[in-house]
Design a protein around this nucleic acid. Structure first.
Lengths: 246, 246
DNA sequence: CGTTTCGTTGAAGAGTGTCAAGGCCAGTGG
DNA sequence: CCACTGGCCTTGACACTCTTCAACGAAACG
């Protein structure tokens, strides 16, 4: 069950040379600090598309830094309803939900073949105790997650379908850009149903709204392939189209 | 503007004798630990009903532990829509949103006269560095907030009005009980509009659903006064009423 | 005691959900 | 290499929940 899905333990980890440094690590670390830090990452782990990194109820032992790939996290209510709580891409940290009860409270599943750095939590606590910069950075990451979720609550609680989709596309766009990919053209790694679950909509609504956006010349869509044509137009929609619609 | 709203600085803080100990502090602290901990709480601060503890954009300096009273946190979109992200009661920690950017990202306002313990963040970081128990506890508190928000996302993303209200009432009920108040009878400190904002509903819907619950004999409502009659019935509603409705 | 805020309730309408049918695409096996 | 299969996406028609608009009543506040 929990047999590690290929551990590349021998591979020296080298955060120092990882191209995700700026996303993953605090800035302004000394070389010595970075060396210390590399002790943190025990191993890497590959997760095949469709497999889960961890599941609700699993013992919490590690955090995971996404090296490459794409994942989703979902929570489930007792009666079986599923809610996608987030999508994760390279440079992001997942597993924070597990700290509170020492059990994971959500499922995290790879939407494409994915590789993560495994960060044993106990070791993180140790290293952090003697490294204020790291501790501080870690706290900021957790806090950022809280702030992100506030944003999602705003979206779910007070926005219409079109606004949600527009916000979603802009968010993806910006995250791709931050990772050096195109800001305007990308492939959705998730299905319409998963987008819908995340945004509190049904998959048909997601599909319809995307088609409408395409008709209005805001984007081009072809299955999972999306191209953003009018970023400003999308922004307008997010803020209750002060000057949009036709 | 930011002139402290009455600081009771001289008052010795005495976490050790605070009746919120179990809610607020890690369990199993030695006396020595508790002494150290009391250095944490710089002052207390009173916030009058309607006043804000902090606002979005304020510099982040401290966390606040609610001693008594009731608050709400709200985020606002650029175009002015407001979303209540949470209600806070005695023993809960607020202000975690500020850590990430060193600016608060939400408004936190007292819904009734409130008193909080002010915990300067820098001091918390210091004390935590030499007190693993505290550090660990703090991480758990942050993680718990993340998990709580996952729950809210589930609610906002996949539940109907009745289910949301039922879940909301049960959540309040449980939190009151944990603080030694009645599990079945309490006063809502927030307006229908605030409940609605939190639950992604309009105030009229909140009002209607509460009336319907009352008609169905699940609760009694009289303005802000609520009495829960049929807890199991509410639970049934939350999980898609497998055997409810009449 | 007047004023304001808050809450309740009704009727009509908009926005999404539901159900259903059909098309597109990738992977599989012949 | 092609046909088949199953998952995913699109689109339409209709139903339903929730919102909107409006009026009124009740409580809170100065």
């Amino acid at each position: 069950m929990n047999a590690p899905t290929v551990n590349i333990a021998n591979l020296r980890v080298a955060c120092s040379s990882c191209n995700l440094r700026e996303l993953c690590l605090p800035v302004g670390l000394s070389l010595k600090d970075i060396e210390k830090l590399e002790e943190l990452v025990a191993t890497r782990k590959k997760v095949k598309r469709g497999d889960s990194l961890f599941r609700a109820g699993d013992r919490f032992e590690s955090l995971y830094a996404v090296r490459l790939g794409f994942l989703k996290s979902t929570v489930m209510s007792q009666d079986g309803r599923e809610q996608v709580t987030g999508f994760h891409m390279a440079g992001e940290l997942v597993g924070l939900d597990g700290i509170s009860s020492e059990l994971h409270s959500c499922d995290t599943v790879a939407l494409e073949d994915t590789e993560v750095c495994v960060i044993p939590y106990e070791r993180l606590e140790e290293v952090a105790s003697s490294m204020p910069v790291l501790r501080n950075h870690f706290h900021k990451v957790m806090s950022r997650e809280i702030v992100r979720e506030h944003g999602v609550m705003l979206l779910l609680g007070s926005m219409h379908a079109e606004e949600r989709l527009a916000a979603f596309l802009l968010n993806l766009s910006q995250r791709f850009e931050a990772r050096g990919y195109s800001r305007t053209e990308f492939v959705l790694r998730m299905t319409r149903a998963e987008i819908g679950s995340f945004l509190g909509l049904k998959l048909e609504t997601v599909s319809r709204v995307l088609s409408r956006f395409a008709q209005d010349g805001l984007i081009e869509v072809n299955q999972k392939h999306v191209r953003i044509i009018d970023t400003e137009g999308l922004r307008g929609i997010v803020s209750g189209q002060p000057g949009a619609a036709a």
